[in-house]
Design a protein around this nucleic acid. Structure first.
Lengths: 247, 247
DNA sequence: CAGTGGTCTAGACCACCCT
DNA sequence: GGGTGGTCTAGACCACTGG
């Protein structure tokens, strides 16, 4: 059996992994916040007692994971959720021409509910825990395109209200980040085809029984903590879900 | 306007990019074939007249792109399509339990056709060019799961026959690689929901009008050369398409 | 101009694999 | 043991940014 140190890294782990872990710890603790600059590589090397090359290797990995961003001549910054970034990273729906356009969002419903077994299992919480449930309708060019049923644990988003959601300046993930210090770093999506029921048909202005793309998205933060469970129903008559695989 | 050198890289490009380009050129030319070992980093440094660190940076990127694989103590190897690799990299369908199982494949049809405008545009060839069209049916536990309509340019796969396809030892991508020196490096997939027509209903043993996941996959090789266009129709009653996004 | 990240070098030492 | 990739260092120089 492998020995594991308190940090969660194997004993004798590379120095740069230790540095990376320490940087992530500072990010998680809020020492450096989204959008802010972090110390220069030289200073980080001094702080952790390693050479610049070792800091670079740690930062390289965090940049590859889109947690940090380097700007030559300016410095290294903590990645921040912005509208453009959201559209680039997490919004996978494109038009038939391959063009990506972010839709207009209308909040349809906001409620406090209790997690059923499926939700609880996916979110890693106890069945019966309190959740907020939001329903959004997304439209492009005035035509409904997507219905999102979004579930977030109340515990992570205390005192969230429909007004807060409705009046947010940017995307929902920006709201999570700015108002609740919850950083969405990664998503897992599971897709299937389904048929529109009456509610979806009405919201999406399609016939009952029309084919829809059903996406179950789990959004994760540091340490793979699940922060949001989202069911999206997409009318793919004139739009598609795009995915790329680099072997 | 930026100046571009003959190699396609901007003038004054980093040395390691030039090294990377030269390594890829050797891969494309077949100097090092899939599964084979390439020269050690020390030898590559001597060959290209750069330090080991620079070679490492070039190889790092090719490893990140899954074109090369490093094995500590053994050497660096050209990535080869194997069954496991295919399942890991390109087969995105998982069971409801999250388990990935590769299906049994039956060739249903094999024909020579001419590219229509849509196929030609996606494959980057002329309308009317000759294509092979293969139809596969994939089943798990004896139940039909996926129908694949596969189109490849005859030019890239001379003298391909149904027998060659039927008697291949591994996956289709292994056949491309081993018999035609065509390496699939990357795929782009576009997903939508559709309804089963009579042919699909019959092949997948579902009702006409059942919802299916329709995947249009474009497989690409070096220089983003399109090598295969594949329409997959998936019965997602008990399986899902899985995608992950790292912010 | 000073400070930052980006590139490149040269070499040391380690862990690992094969023979 | 000899060769390989993996880590780490120390320093030089370049390109870019901002004041």
């Amino acid at each position: 059996m492998n020995q594991i140190s308190l940090s969660g890294l194997p004993l004798g782990a590379p120095l740069y992994q230790e540095v990376k872990r320490k940087i992530m710890e500072s990010l998680r603790s809020g020492e450096w916040k989204p959008g802010e600059i972090i110390p220069s590589e030289k200073r980080l090397g001094e702080r952790f007692g390693v050479s610049i090359g070792t800091v670079r290797k740690a930062v390289d990995e965090l940049v590859a994971e889109n947690i940090l961003i380097r700007h030559q001549g300016r410095g290294t910054f903590v990645t921040s959720h912005t509208h453009d970034r959201y559209v680039f990273a997490f919004f996978h729906i494109i038009g038939q021409d391959g063009h990506k356009e972010y839709p207009k969002v209308e909040l349809q419903a906001f409620a406090s509910i209790k997690a059923d077994a499926d939700m609880a299992q996916r979110l890693g919480i106890r069945t019966g825990s309190k959740l907020f449930r939001l329903t959004n309708r997304l439209s492009i060019a005035g035509k409904p395109l997507i219905v999102d049923d979004i579930h977030v644990p109340e515990r992570s988003f205390p005192h969230l209200t429909a007004e807060t959601v409705r009046n947010r300046p940017g995307t929902l993930y920006q709201l999570y980040q700015d108002n609740f210090a919850v950083a969405v770093l990664r998503t897992e999506e599971r897709l299937r085809a389904c048929l529109a029921d009456e509610r979806l048909a009405s919201l999406l202005e399609v016939e009952v029984g029309a084919p829809l793309l059903h996406i179950v998205r789990l959004a994760l933060s540091f340490n793979d903590l699940a922060v949001e469970l989202r069911h999206s129903y997409v009318n793919t008559a004139h739009h598609e879900y795009f995915a790329e695989e680099h072997q």
